[in-house]
């Protein structure tokens, strides 16, 4: 029996007291500095609240009519960009993903593929879009290329990680039959990663559509340009209509892809 009156307290998350306090104090100091460097013009904010209210009101009565032609055009353009970018992005990301998987690719190929993935993932789509617009001119081509480029980094990384996580025994068994490298990929690896690859592709389709609504702001086609104009003109009712359309389409594709995924399992 332990002696009575022994004290017990829950052990702290970080065992080292110095580190614990350093992190806590550091966090407090950072927060204070960050909040102090915030310059807020309260008069402007108050004024804005009115405008915010107009937007909320506008959201309740979205105006699909007055700019319906631009909206339809923009949405169609966004969708085409999404389709093309997703298809080509995935087609290119498969070899890159294979090359970036350490367990099946030789070291030089591995390094090159990992570098491509790193560059593609670091820069936000909009920044990439700015560069591609400079190169290809305004329009949906720049947008499609941007989204494809972003898709390569995203899918390549996840595919490579998936391949690195496969059950090595299954792949070894296929190798032991005297299979060539492409046969090894087709029989030993593809069946193991396919379900997730399909799921990720559908997920990336969603993301690409959402992103396609943004890169139009810098001139890369899609619904973003229309939306930007609407905000610039303070046409909040049109902006609300566009946003509602985007939300509806995202919900629809998400629902569709979840149905598809369940069927493919």
């Amino acid at each position: 029996m332990a002696a009575a009156g022994r004290r017990w307290r829950a052990p702290p998350l970080i065992a080292n007291p110095w580190l614990r306090w350093a992190i806590a104090i550091g966090a407090v100091i950072y927060l204070a500095l960050a909040l102090m460097s915030l310059e807020v013009k309260w008069s402007r904010v108050c004024e804005g609240l009115d405008r915010g209210w107009t937007f909320v009101v506008a959201f309740a009565q979205p105006n699909f009519i007055s700019r319906s032609e631009e909206i339809v055009e923009g949405i169609v353009e966004s969708l085409t960009m999404t389709v093309v970018a997703t298809v080509f992005g995935i087609l290119i990301s498969i070899p890159i993903g294979l090359g970036a998987a350490r367990n099946i690719a030789p070291v030089p190929v591995y390094l090159v593929c990992r570098a491509i993935i790193a560059v593609s993932r670091t820069f936000q789509e909009v920044i990439v879009a700015i560069l591609f617009v400079k190169m290809f001119g305004f329009g949906p081509l720049a947008g499609a290329v941007t989204l494809a480029f972003a898709t390569i980094g995203f899918m390549g990384k996840l595919l490579a990680e998936d391949i690195e996580d496969i059950d090595p025994a299954q792949a070894e068994a296929i190798r032991a039959t005297g299979a060539s490298w492409p046969q090894l990929v087709n029989y030993g690896i593809q069946p193991q990663v396919m379900p997730r690859l399909l799921g990720l592709s559908l997920y990336r389709f969603d993301i690409n559509f959402r992103e396609s609504a943004v890169i139009g702001i810098v001139g890369a086609g899609g619904i973003g340009a229309t939306l930007n104009t609407a905000f610039d003109r303070y046409e909040f009712d049109t902006a609300a209509a566009i946003l509602i359309t985007i939300i509806a389409i995202v919900m629809a594709t998400e629902y569709g892809s979840s149905l598809l995924r369940r069927r493919l399992q």
């Binding site: 405008r51 959402r210 943004v214 702001i217 902006a239 995202v250």
Partner: peptide
């Protein structure tokens, strides 16, 4: 949740800049 997720942060920024005026606050 769906509404928040469907709209990219850049679009939120666009909206908030129109409402709150340009600046870090709109970004946050």
């Amino acid at each position: 949740i769906v509404s928040s997720r469907s709209i990219n942060s850049l679009i939120w920024a666009l909206l908030l800049v129109a409402i709150l005026g340009p600046g870090v606050l709109a970004g946050i």
